[in-house]
């Protein structure tokens, strides 16, 4: 699946940039510095928008296309921000056969975002995950650390309301 790019404006702070520049400085000149810098950048910003990728490219003197290529190759890198509440719906086999897709679709409908996107107010982000080892509760979703199981699509409204 092609990686989804951020639909939201970049909201990086000067403090974050200072942190990132320190990370780059620490790794500069190292062989294979790109991936560790990208990982730490993602920890600082939560994701790797073009603005961040440009800082990394400039700092490490590599073409920004190379940074982008790596960021779209590895699933651990996100190009979209995470929301205050991170919704993760399991679409693993057990959850899927128990109707997880309908749960997922209902969330898309309510929040108006697709998988790997974040709502404009920065409140919710949505992702599909594979088995989280709670097949007995299928279909299951998590919102941050909270686990919701044995769901039907109609449960979604009330659950989301708690966070709105």
């Amino acid at each position: 699946m092609k990686k989804r790019k951020s639909n939201l404006p970049f909201k990086g702070t000067p403090e974050q940039e200072k942190q990132l520049l320190a990370v780059i400085e620490a790794h500069k000149g190292e062989k294979g510095a790109l991936m560790p810098v990208m990982q730490e950048a993602q920890e600082i910003y939560g994701y790797l928008p073009i603005e961040v990728q440009q800082i990394i490219a400039k700092g490490l003197s590599v073409p920004v296309e190379e940074v982008y290529g790596v960021s779209t190759f590895y699933s651990q890198f996100a190009l979209t921000p995470k929301g205050e509440y991170k919704i993760s719906v399991c679409l693993g086999t057990a959850c899927y056969v128990k109707g997880a897709q309908e749960v997922f679709d209902r969330i898309v409908e309510i929040l108006g975002i697709e998988a790997d996107e974040c709502t404009e107010d920065g409140k919710f982000s949505l992702e599909a995950c594979r088995c989280i080892g709670a097949c007995g509760l299928a279909p299951v979703m998590t919102i941050n650390e909270e686990v919701y199981g044995r769901l039907v699509a109609d449960d979604v409204d009330d659950i989301l309301k708690k966070y709105m």
């Binding site: 699946m1 990728q53 073409p63 920004v64 296309e65 982008y68 290529g69 779209t72 190759f73 590895y74």
Partner: peptide
């Protein structure tokens, strides 16, 4: 460079 992965891999520019 090569963007994305697997079947979606394609040559393109940053972003």
């Amino acid at each position: 460079g090569a963007n994305d992965r697997g079947f979606d891999t394609h040559i393109g520019s940053a972003f």
